[in-house]
Structures are given as structure tokens and as C-alpha cells.
Amino acid sequence: MDTQNEYQVDLGNLMAFDPFHHFTSIPSAREELVAECLSNGTELVQAIVSGVFNLPSTEDIDGPLVKLPPPTTKLPREKPLPKPKPPTRWEQFAKAKGIRNRKKDKVVWDEQTGTWKRRYGYDRVNDDADVPIIEAKMTDEPGVDPFAKRVAEKKERVQKNQKNQLQNLKTAAKAGALPSHVQLAATALPITGTLAAKKKFTKDELGNVAGLASTATASGGKFDKKLRGEKPVKNQGKHRKFLPVVEGSGIGSQEKEQTDRVLSKLISSNSHEILNVDKAVTMYNVNKERKRRNQYGKPSSTRNEQGKSSSTPSKLKPNNKPMKAKSFPNKGKGSFSKKGKGSFSKKGKA
């Protein structure tokens, strides 16, 4: 898009755009508004016209012709780009072997009649139908009509070619490059687009369906008469088993285990989400503090011989260890409670 005195001009579309125009005050009367729009439009048209008339022109009977440049404004297509046609089997083969197309004459000299005849089609050269007599050979089988045989052979060749053509069309259809007038479906009109070909059932699939049908009785096919040659069902339907929900020992606990396993798997995969940031931060802070204290308190600990693990100087430490030491030798807790219990119960009874 070339800018001609601040207008964007697209000569290919004969379009101009003034991106700076605005009304200082929108006129209230319709006529004034229209007049202003038209005066602005005239300037823009003038810009396009000056572009068009300055293009090199050639004289024609109807008037001067100019060659317009292609449009610069990008607009969407209406249909997707055509896809390239895949090569046919013959084209692939010819390419591999380096066979090139040669032009052949449409007409060929026919020596039998001494005239020029078409290579193919009606009244063609070397037409089998023109031969009235076929000489018998020693190898001929008796009782075979050579004319009928020839016709049958021809038919076979035609059929084979049609089969090959269909195959090539199928590959083209797969690539989405089927010629527009060809359709590979028997049911729909060409205009409605191609329908997917009906799926052919395989032998296994049919067997499976037959098996399922035979088991669709009250007894699950147990007492049904088997047909001659009918095979037993290959893929019987799955029998789902559900574990008991009520908790218990043995099989009852399996259900819980199963759910636990699923849960732990989920949790482990999303473990980063479970991380408690606050807790982690406090843990980190505590560790750091401890380290700092360690470094600070080391000289004192050597003096006191209290042990490496003690973090504070012994004087500042709350004196709770001696208490614990007192309580432990008694092995009190258990025995103490027992005593208590016993006494209580006795009291209750009495």
C-alpha cells in the first residue's frame, strides 16, 4: 500500500483509505454531513484516479487500457488451496524406470487397407473385430471358440484397467486431491461432497457379534442348541467384580488398600502442591538459627564437656534434664498409673 499524501491507496482494488480524517464537529443537518463526506471522498477518489491515470496505458478501440497492479489488501480465500495430485502407480513406476512420455500420432498407416486410420477408437487400426478368420494352431484346445475367447480376454483387460484406475482414485481421495467431477460413493450426489465408504465387517468381528447374540438369553446361552459348525464364544463379556465397601479383615481391607494406593499415587505425582510453605520456611529458619548458635556456642561446649549436640551454654540452659533423670529411674509412668487405676477401681467397688 503506497501512501500518497497521507492516504493509503490500493490500486488493485481501486480503494483508498484516509486514516486521519475525523469530524471536528458532527453537523446536525443531514445535508451538511453528506456534503462533507462527499468532499472528503472526492479528494480520496482524486488520489486513486491520479494513481490510475499515471499508469502506462495502451490504446484500445473502447478506450485507454491500463494494467492494474495486484491488490495489496489481503483478503481471505473462499476455498482452501487445491492439493497436488499424488502420482498414479504407473507414474511412480515410470519415474523409477526413467520412462518418459512420447508423443504418438493420432492416425496410423494401416497396411492391410492402405489407408490412414485412428490409433484408438472407432474404425481403428489393427482392430480385432475386423479379422474375419482366425487360423487354427496346433496348440489350440478343441471346443473353444477363438472369437469368444478374444472378446472375453478383452473384457478382462478392461476390467483390470478399471480396477487400477479405481485404486489410483482411492489414493488421490486419501490425499484430498480427487478430481472435482469424480466421486467415489454410490449414494450421494457429487455436490454434497464425498461420504465415507461403508465399513466392511471382518470375519472376527462377525464372529464376536454372533457370539454375543447367542449369549443374550436368560441362561447366558448355556442351554441353547448350538448350530452345526458354531464355535464357542471367543471374547465373552467381562465380569466385573467389586470389592466389599464395608471394612473388615481379609478381602474387606483390600478395598481400602486399593483406594489408598490410588490416593498415594495421586499425591506423589502432585506432591509439589502439598508443600506447606509456611512450615518449610519455619523449618529453614530454625535450622539456620541452630547452625548459627552452634558456631557461636562451640568454644563453650568444649569447656563444659557437655557434648557436641548442646547448642546453648550450660548456664543458660533450663534445668530440666535432672528432673527427667529423677523420674526415669523409677520407671514410674506405667507403674504409677497402674497403681492409681487399681486403687480407683477398688474405691469404686467399696
Binding site: L14, M15, D18, P19, H22, L44, V45, I48
Partner: peptide
């Protein structure tokens, strides 16, 4: 016949 088309106004942008 091929028409000219003219747009004006900053609102178009």
C-alpha cells in the same frame, strides 16, 4: 463497471 471504494475516518483503524 469496477467501482472505486473510499474509506475515511480514523475509527476504521
Amino acid at each position: 463497471s469496477k467501482p472505486f471504494i473510499v474509506f475515511s475516518g480514523e475509527a476504521f483503524e
